[in-house]
Design a protein around this nucleic acid. Sequence first.
DNA 1: AATTTGCTGTGACTTTTATCACGAACCGAT
DNA 2: ATCGGTTCGTGATAAAAGTCACAGCAAATT
Lengths: 192, 192
Amino acid sequence: MYEPLFDYISRYSGQTLTEKDQEIIRGAMEPKKLRKKQYFLEEGKVCKYTGFIVKGAMRQFSVDDNGTEHILQLTIENWWVVDRQSFMNQTPSRYFIEAWEDTELLLLPRPQLDTILAIPAINAMFWQMSENNHIASQKRLDDTISLNAVSRFENFQKQYPEIMQRFPLHQIASYLGIARETLSRIRRPGAH
Amino acid sequence: MYEPLFDYISRYSGQTLTEKDQEIIRGAMEPKKLRKKQYFLEEGKVCKYTGFIVKGAMRQFSVDDNGTEHILQLTIENWWVVDRQSFMNQTPSRYFIEAWEDTELLLLPRPQLDTILAIPAINAMFWQMSENNHIASQKRLDDTISLNAVSRFENFQKQYPEIMQRFPLHQIASYLGIARETLSRIRRPGAH
DNA sequence: AATTTGCTGTGACTTTTATCACGAACCGAT
DNA sequence: ATCGGTTCGTGATAAAAGTCACAGCAAATT
């Protein structure tokens, strides 16, 4: 159960975990299963955990005044899920995070964060994650303000083929900030 | 010269800097002046420094195949400027960073990063910055995929009134991902 | 003072994207 | 096997935004 996480940490920190480190992690994080459509976080509630996805798929979205969902993040195995703002400050969230497939998580409760960060490999991993996160956001933003719907979709397909296959197209459309009908037409064979 | 930075660090870390800390920072970071239109970073070059803006205004942008600029960041005093990806890995950048007003910076060379991070207050500040950064990106992204041009502009005005006043409208338009003509019409009195 | 350059606005028109309405295929649960 | 919900596609139409062309003005440069 914890193996994927240990692998992930080693890969991202470039450091190996000692037996002792592994024990600390096991002690700090609890396994949790979510069935499809169950919420990990709901709007207005505080995000008590950061979750590492061992198996499954999840989505994070906001809901606007018209009740329309806007997808901010689509995630699968070996990704972290959390509303960082809500988690760090323990303030109410503006987002929903929902299991899109039956999902197995490892939960890190907020009070355990400092315990975990004391481990050098974990600390290094979080820096690296923060780094990657920033780069990915910047790229996504650049795409969003620079490209039209067709190119945005092509880039997405190229960058996240795995996610393409595991989420329905209308969710991809929402992630890209376009109407589902537009995405449907973009994909039409022989188009553009 | 260094005072604004020291204030910034205290404010963001919630910690005070010792005399010794201040000495280390003075030793690690060098002052630099840029005249309007001078580059801090050019596409294809490596970002050797992270800069703290003491006075002035700068912009970060990419240039697409048509030669069109797309503005990713508009920054003024008490902000950091850097292409994190290029800086951290010392790889060529895809972006330009340019002084938009005559600007005074404090430069942190890449090799000095570890020196600086050893100071607890600085370390805490970087965590907090990374946090804020993430939150701001997420908000901007949410706006970009959720809202139309009018609302995006109104949000921008409300959130960054200072920046509104110091950059020309066509740059704001680019930042928002809309044509300058569209922004001009949006602003027209009596519109919408 | 004259000239150039950059910034902003506006009209006419085109392109892109959203919205609404409908139907077909598929899937899971009773 | 059937029913209800979800997903996906598509046509018709509307709305939003982009593009092109031109003009006025202000600031900077010579």
